[in-house]
Write a protein that binds this DNA or RNA. Structure first.
Length: 366
DNA sequence: GAAACGTGGAC
DNA sequence: TGTCCAAGTTT
C-alpha cells in the first residue's frame, strides 16, 4: 500500500483526528470571546479574586443575572481581604435576590479562610482550592485553569452539552459525568487551559445551545458526532426529573405605623440566615385555617385581614402557594420573642429573599 | 447516589 | 403555561 493510500484510509476511518481541536478552539476564542465584567482584556493576567467571586456567583446562575451583583461586590469589596473583614450579614444583604444563599455564607467563610490561613493569597493549586468552603470539584478546576493557567478542564453544564454532542455520548447524565470529563480533557492543548475552557463555555452558551444550536457557526462542527447523526438537540441524554408536590402556607404582615414585623430564619436549610416575615410551616395539603393557627402571638391584634389572592413562588424542588394575612398594632407594641420591627422604608437593605419580597408586596398592597 | 438548595429568562 | 436551563456544592 502506498503512503497516500494509507493516509486516505486513515482520514476516512478517524476523521476526528484530522483536526487539531484545541487549536481550533483557541483560534475561535481569540476572535469571538465574550467581554464579561470578570474577564480581563486579552493578554492580561486574570485576578484570582475576581475569578473566584464570579465562579461562585455563576454556580447555577446566568451571566446576565450575575453581572450587576458582581459589580456591586467588587465596588464594595475590591479584594479578598476586604471581603474577609466584612460581616456575614453585610454579605447576605448584598447577595439577597441571587438565590442559593449557602453560597453567600461559604463565600464569606472562604474569604476569611484565605485571609487567615493563606495570608490573603488564594492557593494556586486545584487541591488547595478544593479545601476551601464553597469550592467543589468544578470550581477548583475553573479557578486553577483560568486564574493560574493550570492544565485542567473544568466541566460545567455548557461543556457537558458541547462534549456530549461532539462525541454523541449515549450514556445519560449524571452517570456520564466521568466519561464526559475525560473527553473534555482531550480538548486541552499544551497551554492556555483557562481559555480552552472558556472557549467551550462561550460556544455552549451562544452556539451549542440546548435548543436549535447554530452548528454553522461552530469551530468544531466538521466532526461533531451528534451533528453527523442529525441529532444535536437530543444530547445530552438525561433522565427526566420529578417536580415536588405543591406546598401551602401563610405569611403574616404585621405593621406598627411605618414598621414591619420580621425575623431571621435558621442558618441551615432553605433560605438559611435570610430575613422573613413570620409565617406558618410550608406543607403539602395544608389549608388556610390550619396555617392561620400559626400566626404570631400578639394580644394587640384584634383581627387578621386575609388579603385577596395568593402569592406563588417556585423553588427548585417544590412550588409554593402563600396566603397573606395582614394586621396592624398600636405604637410601642413589643415584638414577640425572636422578632423585630424594621422600617418599611429600609426593607430594600434587608437580606430578603424574593419570595418574601413578593409576600410583603402583596400584604402591603405595593 | 440522591436530595436539598433560588431565581429569572427563554420558548 | 409548563418545562427546561444557568460557570454546582453540600449533606
Amino acid at each position: 500500500m502506498t503512503a497516500s493510500a494509507a493516509a486516505k484510509i486513515k482520514r476516512q476511518a478517524a476523521p476526528a483526528e484530522s483536526a487539531d481541536r484545541p487549536a481550533l478552539l483557541l483560534d475561535w476564542y481569540d476572535r469571538h470571546r465574550r467581554r464579561l465584567p470578570w474577564r480581563p482584556l486579552a493578554g492580561e493576567r486574570a485576578d484570582p479574586y475576581r475569578v473566584w467571586l464570579s465562579e461562585i456567583m455563576l454556580q447555577q446562575t446566568g451571566v446576565k443575572t450575575v453581572g450587576p451583583y458582581f459589580e456591586k461586590f467588587v465596588a464594595r469589596w475590591p479584594d479578598v481581604a476586604a471581603l474577609g473583614r466584612a460581616s456575614v450579614d453585610d454579605v447576605l444583604r448584598m447577595w439577597a435576590g441571587l438565590g442559593y444563599y449557602s453560597r453567600a455564607r461559604n463565600l464569606h467563610a472562604c474569604a476569611v479562610a484565605v485571609l487567615r490561613d493563606h495570608g490573603g493569597i488564594f492557593p494556586d493549586t486545584e487541591g488547595g482550592l478544593r479545601q476551601l468552603p464553597g469550592i467543589g470539584p468544578y470550581t477548583a478546576k475553573a479557578i486553577a485553569a483560568i486564574a493560574f493557567d493550570i492544565r485542567t478542564m473544568p466541566v460545567d453544564g455548557n461543556i457537558e452539552r458541547v462534549v456530549s454532542r461532539l462525541y454523541a455520548v449515549e450514556e445519560p447524565l449524571p452517570q456520564a459525568k466521568p466519561r464526559i470529563q475525560e473527553l473534555a480533557a482531550t480538548l486541552l492543548g499544551p497551554a492556555r487551559a483557562g481559555d480552552s475552557a472558556q472557549a467551550l463555555m462561550d460556544i455552549g452558551s451562544s452556539i451549542c445551545t440546548p435548543k436549535k444550536p447554530a452548528c454553522a457557526l461552530c469551530p468544531l462542527n466538521e466532526d461533531c458526532a451528534a451533528r453527523l447523526l442529525g441529532d444535536q438537540e437530543t444530547f445530552p441524554r438525561k433522565a427526566p426529573k420529578k417536580s415536588g408536590d405543591l406546598r401551602r402556607g401563610a405569611a403574616f404582615i404585621v405593621t406598627r405605623g411605618d414598621e414591619l414585623l420580621v425575623r431571621t430564619r435558621p442558618e441551615k436549610g432553605l433560605l438559611g440566615g435570610m430575613t422573613e416575615v413570620p409565617g406558618s410551616e410550608w406543607l403539602a395539603g395544608q389549608d388556610d385555617k390550619e396555617a392561620l393557627k400559626q400566626a404570631p402571638a400578639l394580644t394587640a391584634i384584634s383581627r387578621w385581614h386575609r388579603k385577596t389572592g395568593v402569592v406563588t413562588h417556585v423553588f427548585t424542588h417544590f412550588p409554593l402557594e402563600l396566603v397573606v394575612y395582614a394586621a396592624t398594632v398600636p405604637a410601642r407594641t413589643r415584638p414577640p420573642d425572636g422578632m423585630r420591627w424594621v422600617p418599611i422604608a429600609t426593607l430594600a437593605d434587608e437580606a430578603l429573599p424574593n419570595v418574601m419580597r413578593k409576600a410583603i408586596a402583596h400584604g402591603l398592597d405595593i
